[in-house]
């Protein structure tokens, strides 16, 4: 189905000028969307927002443990949201092959749900046993004094 539509769109692109054809394809594809794909778009954009939070946290936080707090939560949540959104978006028809792809993607989501907290925990334990202590109030006061 989709390949036929794409061939028709390509023919249209060759025939006439670019901008009205682009508008036409956009409206037609907007009409073709079903509710599952819209839900998938929303999940993907939500995952991007979570990943933005993780990236800003990795950039701005002062300490290894606080950075790990931002990265561990934001990373696992955004990966799970984005993968499930992509799985919903790429469901073109409900044939056996597309169901298999969806199940595999949900398998990756399950795997990341199990392993991302595990790796965060192992890394935190390694850092803590390396006498790498978190920041306390004295360190924060020192940092403020240096800035002034």
């Amino acid at each position: 189905m989709l390949k036929k539509k794409r061939k028709e769109q390509e023919r249209k692109m060759k025939d006439s000028s670019f901008i009205p054809v682009l508008a036409e394809t956009m409206t037609s594809s907007l009409n073709d969307l079903n509710i599952i794909q819209i839900f998938g778009f929303l999940l993907g954009v939500l995952g991007l927002i979570f990943f933005l939070g993780a990236a800003v946290g990795m950039l701005r936080f002062p300490d290894f443990y606080t950075r790990m707090h931002a990265a561990g939560k934001g990373d696992s949540m955004s990966t799970m949201l984005m993968l499930s959104g992509l799985g919903l978006v790429t469901m073109e028809d409900y044939s056996l092959g597309s169901w298999l792809v969806f199940v595999k993607i949900m398998g990756i989501v399950l795997f990341i749900y199990l392993t991302s907290p595990t790796s965060t925990h192992v890394l935190m334990k390694a850092a803590f046993e390396d006498n790498h202590m978190p920041l306390d109030e004295k360190d924060l006061k020192k940092a403020k004094g240096k800035k002034k």
Binding site: F51, A54, M58, F64, R67, M68, A71, D75, S76, T79, M82, L83, L86, I105, I108, I112, S116, S119, L123, A126, A127, D130, H132
Partner: peptide, 21 residues
Amino acid sequence: TAYDRILAVNVIGTKTAVLLV
């Protein structure tokens, strides 16, 4: 520290799996 680097590499690797999809 080295732990910051491993943490960032871990995050980038997880995101690369998403990027492959």
